[in-house]
Design a protein around this nucleic acid. Structure first.
Length: 202
DNA sequence: CAGTGGATCGTCT
DNA sequence: GACGATCCACTGG
């Protein structure tokens, strides 16, 4: 288990980073409670030229400010007043790229996740969908701006994903973004039951 | 199954 | 004052 260094996140190749995050392990440790899972679904948000991005048109506010910093930082915000969505900031200062983590396959700390979700038994909804995974891992908007090296970290455990195992599609829930809604910026591990969105028909 | 609507509040206009 | 990078429960077929 090797924590990904800041340099992993600071490249300008957003789509490649979003793709390479598939198969990595997202871990949290809050108050001694460890939880984590394998990332199986991501979405890329292309900053100032992407109508789906909060940083579109160089929109710089107190909320979006962390996206303008160096890569390797968490961007967490509240959606629909209920859900905390976790993003990884990428690229260098001044280039507000981000990758939304949409789903994980739970690996460790499953009892802790069940407790946070108020669930009795393991089921596929744990870690499925960006709101669910943040809740399971205990991530909230108070963690926005945190470096991904301490309480929240992303690790390589040696798991390898072949290019052919990664599916690509349009992003989910970004209809407001006009033509940019159709861009192929969503990546997922084919056949994984924890991936969100409509089931793929085979 | 598909479709619909409610929850709930920070953020920006 | 409007609106989400969502989720779940509930409806009807």
């Amino acid at each position: 288990m090797r924590k990904l260094p800041g340099s992993f996140f600071q490249g300008n190749d957003l789509l490649l980073i979003a793709r390479k995050l598939i198969g990595k392990v997202l871990m949290t440790e809050f108050d001694g409670l460890v939880a984590g899972g394998r990332i199986v679904e991501t979405e890329a948000y292309y900053g100032i030229i992407d109508r789906a991005s909060h940083a579109y048109n160089n929109r710089r506010t107190s909320r979006t400010e962390v996206m303008f910093g160096d890569g390797g930082i968490a961007y967490v915000y509240l959606c629909y007043g209920i859900h905390h969505l976790f993003n990884v900031v990428t690229n260098k200062e001044g280039h507000p790229h981000a990758v939304l983590i949409r789903a994980i396959e739970p690996l460790t700390g499953i009892p802790v996740m069940l407790e946070r979700l108020r669930k009795e038994k393991f089921d596929l909804s744990i870690g499925r969908g960006p709101g669910n995974l943040s809740k399971a891992l205990g991530i909230t908007k108070m963690h926005t701006g945190h470096r991904l090296q301490e309480q929240i970290s992303i690790c390589d455990d040696g798991f390898r994903v072949a290019d052919s195992a990664i599916g690509v599609s349009a992003r989910i829930g970004v209809d407001y973004a006009g033509e940019d809604a159709a861009l192929p910026y969503r990546f997922y591990l084919k056949g994984n039951a924890h991936v969100s969105g409509p089931r793929i028909k085979t």
